[in-house]
Design a protein around this nucleic acid. Structure first.
Lengths: 164, 164
DNA sequence: AAGTGATAGTTTGATCTCAAACTAACTGCA
DNA sequence: TGCAGTTAGTTTGAGATCAAACTATCACTT
């Protein structure tokens, strides 16, 4: 069983009875930040489990996709695009290179930087993950409903872009 | 400067010129999972920085709020409500108790379990954080727009609840 | 009672992440 | 030239998190 078991609840101000009370979320119930976290976590977990068979995780997937669509991208650009600190990317890229999914070339004109590209193996893995991701997305779409989807994603994008 | 510097980009299939190209997100652009992560991360960071002055973080805030609204809640219930594994909660609760914000009482009828309650100090800290959270939420609301807010939060809730 | 299976919370180990400090290399200006 | 400030990527340290294994206790059945 993943996550904690949400079963019965015997609670009460002081003296404990055997009444199963629902949780009171107070203001959290309507706050965006909290619900964003809960939804993200649920989505992340579900996709993690889906793609575990391939031996990757959602972060790797985004990384591979961004490299595929932006051949020659550099690590710092990649980190900005994927919303992670550049230092978080160091071990990820290292691992992808070690496993032969990504190729790293030093840039002639700037010897500090690397350019990243997918190898054939990388493209293959990406294709596998894309299939898993599509399945996952269909699941999310079903929950969101086709009507709201575009607006929902737009709102997420605005949030990501505009929070101070 | 937080996160990596998203500045210029000199990229190109093979030979590098000084053209600043925007990132191609491919299918990520429309996928819910990815945008959920980006928005969540942005929101989390912003609130973290806001509440850093109080010496807490978003997770602690949810924890305190849930204890406040559900006096006598047990750790396992709390972990389910806050979407974290119960084992993640152990050090959090320990720390809150150590710092005198939360009080932990063994349950007579079940000596495995604890009941959690806020102390006066805990209520004070929660009040402080609530102020910070309200400011943060106003900021998010402004981005989302009052019209869409309810629907947006409902969708987040459905996602959290219904992802397999 | 004794034993079996579930449950509350902790421990441990593996990942992932940020943030700040660091190295190397670039750019621009004096 | 040569120095000052910036940038690309790495290292290091701290903190979260999950998941599985574990301990203690409970609840139920026999």
């Amino acid at each position: 069983m993943r996550k904690s078991d949400s079963k019965k609840a015997d609670r009460g101000g002081g003296s404990g009875e055997a009444t199963m009370k629902p949780i009171d979320f107070g203001p959290l119930a309507t706050w965006v930040g909290f619900n964003l976290r809960m939804a993200q976590e649920a989505s992340f977990q579900a996709f993690s489990h889906h793609s575990a068979a391939i031996g990757e995780n959602p972060g790797r997937f985004a990384t591979l996709m961004l490299i595929a669509r932006n051949p020659g991208i550099r690590q710092t650009e990649l980190s900005a695009a994927s919303g992670r600190d550049k230092s978080s990317l160091t071990p990820v890229v290292e691992d992808l290179v070690r496993r032969g999914l990504v190729e790293r070339k030093r840039v002639d004109s700037d010897r500090r930087a690397y350019r990243l590209n997918l190898t054939a193996a990388g493209r293959k893995t990406l294709a596998l993950m894309t299939r898993a991701a599509r399945k996952h997305e269909r699941n999310l779409d079903r929950i969101i409903g086709p009507r709201d989807k575009k607006r929902f994603v737009d709102t997420l994008k605005r949030l990501a872009a505009e929070i101070e």
